[in-house]
Write a protein that binds this DNA or RNA. Structure first.
Lengths: 152, 152
DNA sequence: TATTGTTATACTCTATAACTATA
DNA sequence: TATAGTTATAGAGTATAACAATA
């Protein structure tokens, strides 16, 4: 039985997750926490409310993740300069270094995987994956829209 | 800034998960439980120990997942014919129907996504993804091996 | 009155360790 | 003595709801 392209894509996603989880193992970091660090690195210092929106989770969840990351020394809570309700979360310098290193490894992995593809196939591969990602994103957005409609 | 191929692949993985989770929403099913159902559909009636190995999860975890799926009527526990320690888990007929339908939708999604790719790019895409999956699998296995060695 | 974050509570997934029944 | 599954316990991630402080 031939393997569907879809199954290979799912396998790739699983392998990524497993590899990431293994890389964090022993550091006290988890997938959810690294995701938050990643978002912080890209967005810069942010309120917890903004982090909740960017991560698409509840504010309550951000409280828990920030609690953990603060305890492990990866982030710092500072008061908002004008809004006393808000809290600004920012990476510590060691965490910023860690994230920069991770981004480097990420680019390196990208190159390693691309090197496994025959040079004459690369352009078509890039186009095909971009097309699939776009199509899938449309499908997911449509499905979510229908659900919202059904719920109202 | 150009998007890395790796980032698109990660995005595709996330979108799949989100779409799956949305599809189960309201049915009482979760990603972990559907995964177990999927394994059961492919392996046929199995002991919990075999399910633990196939899902790469602890036996304790299987107990919990089977408890939930039994309560929701998706699986049935029956005694092992010869080994009185063992339990055989099998899909109920309704769950078998559900899984067959899901497999159909899965193949349909595969076709839909492939249809978004230019016909002349498809062969190269298939080859490229297969090459990447193989390379990544090798990397993950190697990394796990090093870790095992370090732990001993 | 609306918003930000937290406390309270609960559920799922996951793990390890100890235990029971059986092989 | 080893194996299959469960109970006990624990921790992370997630959610909703109620609440305090502030806007």
């Amino acid at each position: 039985m031939e393997t569907l392209l879809l199954d290979r894509l799912l396998l790739i996603g699983e392998l990524f997750q497993r590899d990431m989880a293994r890389a964090f193992d022993g550091t006290g970091l988890t997938t959810a926490r690294v995701h938050l660090l990643w978002v912080l690195q890209h967005a810069g210092p942010s309120t917890q409310r903004d982090l909740a929106r960017l991560c698409e989770v509840t504010p309550r969840n951000i409280t828990g993740l920030v609690d953990g990351l603060e305890a492990s020394g990866h982030v710092r809570r500072t008061p908002h300069p004008t809004d006393r309700r808000s809290v600004i979360v920012e990476l510590t310098s060691t965490a910023a270094d860690t994230m920069a290193r991770m981004q480097g490894e990420h680019a390196e992995l990208n190159d390693t995987l691309l090197a496994a593809v025959a040079p004459e196939d690369r352009a078509a591969l890039e186009r095909g994956i971009a097309a699939i990602a776009t199509r899938l994103e449309t499908l997911v957005v449509e499905a979510a829209g229908e659900e919202d409609q059904a719920a109202s």
